[in-house]
Design a protein around this nucleic acid. Structure first.
Lengths: 226, 226
DNA sequence: CCGGATCCGAATCGATACTG
DNA sequence: CAGTATCGATTCGGATCCGG
């Protein structure tokens, strides 16, 4: 019936009709980090036109992927439904798939707190994880990254004002890591931690050198078939 | 640089820029079944405009997802690169995710041989699989479905002219199953095989009744969180 | 018949402005 | 803060056309 339907009775087609429109999956990506207000989403997706953002949110609600929730006290937020949250493994796999094709950032490309958080989740290897507690700085984004017993927790330090459920861990991190876009090559195993430091793609501002090794082992994406 | 970029340096964003355009993922879906000629793809995607099909094929080639291969003797075909084939688990997961949202077919929706083949793959449970050899008819699509030792093989019987690598299994299938769209409810566990027969959503034209039970156990998609 | 290229109206997207 | 309104720029969809 809808003119814009793919005209097939198939699960993939249905999925693409629900989350295949432009920007939709990036909205889901940010909501996987936590509930977000309209303005949070707009900031996390700097290039999205506001009319597209509201259209997508409406469509995702109709599709049962997203719902609106009143924010304790005042305002409102969008969050994934359980059905929407079931996209998490798919989005992580998609992020891993896209990783080798990232190349170098285009001029004007940004890294947002939510995209970096999800990037850490895509690269996280529970099986090889070492315990960690560090601050990761990329551009003006700063995250607190804590790994304990194979479980990853990421909290946003800056830009501040953790959107909704942001709970700041107490105490100081063991290390502070400042990275540029080249950190992709460390995660991808193209270079070793030592080379990464030598080539200035990361700098260990505070903490012991072995922490960088633990980081590289814990966050890693294997090369895909060329 | 590209005006249509999402402006973020992130694996998910990169992936969506490679395969997020309209129709792209459905082209990948069909190519996961096997190499296809331009005309095969056009027939498998009846509503795709031809200019979109050629544009997407060009983009997918530039992205390293698809490549052109000369067809033994004459003509040419498109096939997935190893990198493109790495999308298979993601597409299967997407098909499973979309499955519960399929509802009933819209008027004019079609089922194609490739989409049905992929649907069987998404629903296939190697762990619970029982050996099977049957013909499955849905609309005017007929497939030969063979499960041996937890391995699924699907061949296209009709519409005939298996596009490229179609190898027809020798001999006769043990059973012939004719199904309508309601087979979704059997796969989803909403109804039992007995109910499916009683409600005419499937008909066992030939073969023993236990084959239908084996089919329902082998092809199953669990409900997702509402 | 195969593998597209071209043309054009319709729908969507992107950018900016504006409002309760 | 949370969107709507507007409008030009793109893209999509449908049809036709063309060279092998």
């Amino acid at each position: 019936m809808p003119a814009r339907s793919y005209g097939q009775y198939c699960g993939v087609t249905t999925a693409v009709e629900l989350i295949g429109e432009r920007w939709a999956l990036l909205i889901v990506r940010d909501l996987l980090v936590g509930p977000r207000r309209y303005t949070d989403l707009k900031q996390g997706l700097p290039r999205i036109p506001t009319n597209i953002l509201s259209t997508r949110l409406k469509e995702l609600q109709e599709g049962g992927v997203v719902r609106r929730v009143p924010l304790h006290g005042c305002g409102l937020a969008y969050e994934l439904t359980p059905y929407g949250r079931a996209l998490e493994p798919i989005l992580l796999a998609l992020g891993r798939w896209g990783f080798p094709a990232m190349g170098d950032p285009d001029e004007g490309d940004v890294v947002t707190p939510d995209s970096l958080t999800m990037a850490l989740r895509t690269a996280f290897r529970p099986d090889r994880a070492r315990d960690l507690d560090l601050e990761l700085h990329v551009g003006d984004v700063a995250l607190r990254v804590i790994v304990r017993g194979g479980v990853l927790a990421v909290a946003r330090l800056s830009p501040p004002a953790p959107p909704i459920g942001g709970v700041l861990p107490a105490g100081e991190a063991e290390a502070v890591l400042v990275a540029g876009p080249g950190i992709r090559r460390l995660i991808g195993g193209e270079i070793t931690p030592a080379e990464a430091v030598a080539q200035d793609v990361v700098a260990l501002v505070r903490g012991e050198g072995r922490i960088l090794d633990a980081f590289a082992q814990t966050f890693h994406i294997d090369p895909l078939p060329a």
